[in-house]
Design a protein around this nucleic acid. Structure first.
Lengths: 201, 201
DNA sequence: TAAAGTTCTGATCGTGCCGTCAGAAAGTCG
DNA sequence: CGACTTTCTGACGGCACGATCAGAACTTTA
């Protein structure tokens, strides 16, 4: 298997570089994440990164794709398995926080990229549309609950903003306090938004 | 009034530079906010900024102080004037969104600084403690409502995270959609968190 | 008006970064 | 073993930025 061994080396290098880049991003932040620092952690020289990824921009894209796949694989099946919208909302919140517990470093790296990536030329943020997509998906879940009569009649976008806002605040908390109690927050957020969306308990 | 005219010029320059820096921050983002760009917008040369502020770091600090004062002056009196915790929570949410409506550019500039400022040497974020202070203040408001019996028994920190998370999500929305309906969101957030904190309506 | 102080200019310097490239090292194959 | 490809090194060029500074321009004071 000669061609496979070449491909194997190629993929191993890419995976190693992505992993090291995630570490550097999570520990030092976007501004101090340089090709030199990533190469140093990987024990290689800077040229290797350009050789395998073509440039810093494409390395960042590869990291985003990697972490997005991690998150999607974990959460989508959980939510689709729920029989009611109320349970779907619970699974949504719990799934998000579970992901933060299981994949803290990749998550912090992704947050660094999404919030700090300057973008090319004029457009300021190449990943800004991601949050719009997340809001739209959540709105669909809320619409399901309103159509089925489980939820009261609120403005779906506003409620989606509140729910995602609470979830998106967590990475910053984790960064400042690694011992933060995610389980407590998950229980409280589920209760809070179950009450807030419910018809009239 | 000779000494006053000198001071006047000095203060006028500082105010002009701060205003231009806020504009550049709000329009181009932190990464593209350079002394050269600020100077260009103000119609001066880069040396003037160093002359009046000593460096970029101190200019940023001056902007933070300016905007923080704007926000405090607007919101603190509103909240302290409320007779009940439930009305205090309403005033808190409405005051925050009102500030975003009145001072959009300074707010966006502040967010750029708080989220993107790299900090010196090792410490990653010199303004990270600000969010902790905001959470603590909000927790006090929630504690008031629980002690008075207006609110149910939730975990105050978790609820504070949810409320502030929703508020902190707004600048990003404004950045992507300048025509965003702040009034609708304010009404919905007040209703949502009034229900979520309430005893049992 | 002349001296002293304030404010400003614009070029220049040092730093840190990314991308590139000639060539070395390692692996593959006839 | 020798040609060929893949993979890697480390130095270099080019760029953008913040800071600095000698001197110009302007204002105030005597």
């Amino acid at each position: 298997m000669p061609s496979e061994s070449r491909t194997f080396i190629e993929e191993a290098r890419r995976a190693q570089i992505i992993e090291c880049a995630i570490d550097v991003l999570a520990e030092h932040g976007y501004a101090r994440t340089t090709l030199a620092r990533i190469a140093e952690r990987a024990g290689i020289s800077t040229g290797v990164i350009s050789y395998h990824f073509g440039g810093k921009t494409q390395l960042i894209q590869a990291i985003v794709a990697e972490v997005a796949k991690l998150a999607t694989d974990l959460m989508v099946p959980r939510i689709l398995a729920q029989p009611t919208a109320a349970l779907g909302l619970r699974a949504y919140i719990e799934g998000n926080l579970e992901f933060m517990r299981l994949h803290r470093k990749p998550l912090l790296a992704l947050v660094e990229i999404v919030t700090h990536s300057p973008g090319e030329g004029e457009e300021p943020n190449p990943y800004g549309h991601q949050s719009e997509v997340a809001l739209s998906d959540l709105e669909k879940l809320l619409e399901w609950g309103q159509k089925s009569g489980e939820f009261r009649e609120f403005d779906r976008r506003s409620m989606a903003i509140a729910i995602r806002g609470a979830i998106d605040a967590v990475p910053g908390l984790l960064f400042n306090d690694p011992a933060f109690d995610l389980d407590l927050l998950a229980r409280e957020l589920v209760e809070t938004f179950t009450i807030a969306t419910g018809r009239n308990p």
